[in-house]
């Protein structure tokens, strides 16, 4: 005992300096990798990477993924997983497309439909996971296949939406002042983004605030960190898990509409593999699979990293499609192993 006195006194001294926590460490690694990649691309590849519009293009392409990845992070922070999100996105696209073009619904109603699908998914999956304690992976795997199957049942052939109000909304460009560039002819071209990007950014900020500064957000972390302790601390663990799955599915519904706004069509093959991209982004962004650790900003950077890799891979001439998949998987593998090492070190 006398021995340990000295030791912990020394430990007390160390604690005065703020130690970098595991969560922060993962986040820092992610941001560093992203910056190195992007700046490296600017220096060595130049071209499009020097324009702000390149970044905006990434954002526009990936706004739906950003939203689903945020939802995924929420669930993963509570220790769950939801792989139905890609399917929900496809289902929302197809349902909204059919509702607009074949049933003559107006745009607000189609938005409500998207939200409704997300909500229904969330309630069912959340209930099964939180209150019946079924493995979330199995439930959402079934959910994914259900959504994919339903998509073709709703409408088999892919088609482009003709609805005018919708196309107007789809083509709305929001000019970002001061970020434009001068093209070869010497004309100034404004940089722009679309509505999807705005929605995605609002969601990112909203969720960041929620996770950081609301009691609900903190109880997500508590439940994921140690659900037994969370129960002892007086948190309703089941309800918290339910809310996480509900939010994830509703976000998938929103993402579905954002995706729909970007592509303007319904197809059964839309957003294929998006769930895996969302999980990969979350993991790369520093969300721990075991729950309790994660950060929305990290997830956001994770999505950007993923698409930057894809951009780089295609601009260095490795334009064969498979390299993207392989690099993403390699990066995912790297991060999983880092996480495993960090968590096992903590256990010892």
């Amino acid at each position: 005992m006398a021995l340990s006195t000295k030791k912990s006194a020394a430990a007390g001294q160390v604690q005065k300096k703020k130690k970098i926590t595991d969560a922060n460490l993962l986040l820092i690694i992610t941001i560093a990798i992203f910056l190195i990649m992007y700046i490296g691309a600017m220096i060595f590849l130049g071209g499009g990477f020097l324009n702000a519009q390149n970044l905006f293009n990434i954002l526009m392409q990936q706004s739906a993924l950003i939203i689903t990845a945020c939802g995924m992070s929420l669930v993963m922070i509570t220790g769950g997983i939801d792989i139905s999100v890609g399917g929900v996105v496809a289902l929302v696209c197809m349902s909204c497309a059919v509702s607009l073009d074949y049933m003559n619904w107006n745009v607000p109603m189609s938005i409500l439909l998207a939200l409704g699908i997300g909500l229904a998914y969330g309630i069912v999956q959340g209930f099964l996971v939180a209150y019946l304690e079924i493995q979330p992976f199995i439930i959402s795997l079934a959910g994914m296949f259900f959504a994919r199957g339903m998509t073709t049942i709703v409408h088999t052939e892919p088609f482009n939406v003709q609805n005018e109000a919708f196309t107007a909304l789809k083509n709305t460009r929001i000019i970002v002042p001061g970020m434009g560039n001068v093209n070869r002819l010497g004309n100034y071209i404004d940089a722009y983004i679309n509505i999807g990007v705005i929605v995605a950014l609002v969601i990112v900020i909203g969720l960041f605030v929620m996770l950081r500064w609301t009691k609900l957000g903190r109880s997500f972390y508590a439940v994921g960190g140690n659900s037994q302790s969370a129960l002892m601390l007086g948190i309703n663990v089941r309800r918290t898990k339910f809310i996480a799955h509900l939010m994830c599915s509703v976000l998938a519904g929103i993402a579905g509409y954002v995706y729909f706004l970007y592509v303007g069509s319904g197809s059964a093959s839309h957003a294929s593999g998006m769930e895996m991209d969302a999980i990969a982004s979350s993991i790369i962004g520093g969300t721990l699979l075991t729950g309790g650790v994660g950060n929305i900003i990290g997830t956001f950077v994770g999505v950007l990293s993923l698409s930057t890799i894809q951009n780089i891979v295609s601009s260095v001439g490795l334009d064969e499609a498979w390299w993207t998949g392989i690099t993403v998987a390699a990066m995912l593998c790297l991060f999983l192993v880092i996480q495993s090492v960090i968590t096992s070190r903590k256990r010892d």
């Binding site: 609900l216 109880s219 972390y221 994921g224 960190g225 969370a230 007086g234 309790g292 650790v293």
Partner: peptide, 26 residues
């Protein structure tokens, strides 16, 4: 409890106050 029933991934203050107050705000 003997085994620590706190959440290691929250801050010290959060561990002291979470689950104790009602309402949404903090």
């Amino acid at each position: 409890y003997q085994e620590i029933t706190l959440c290691p991934n929250l801050t010290v203050a959060e561990n002291m106050y979470i689950g104790r107050t009602k309402g949404v705000g903090q």
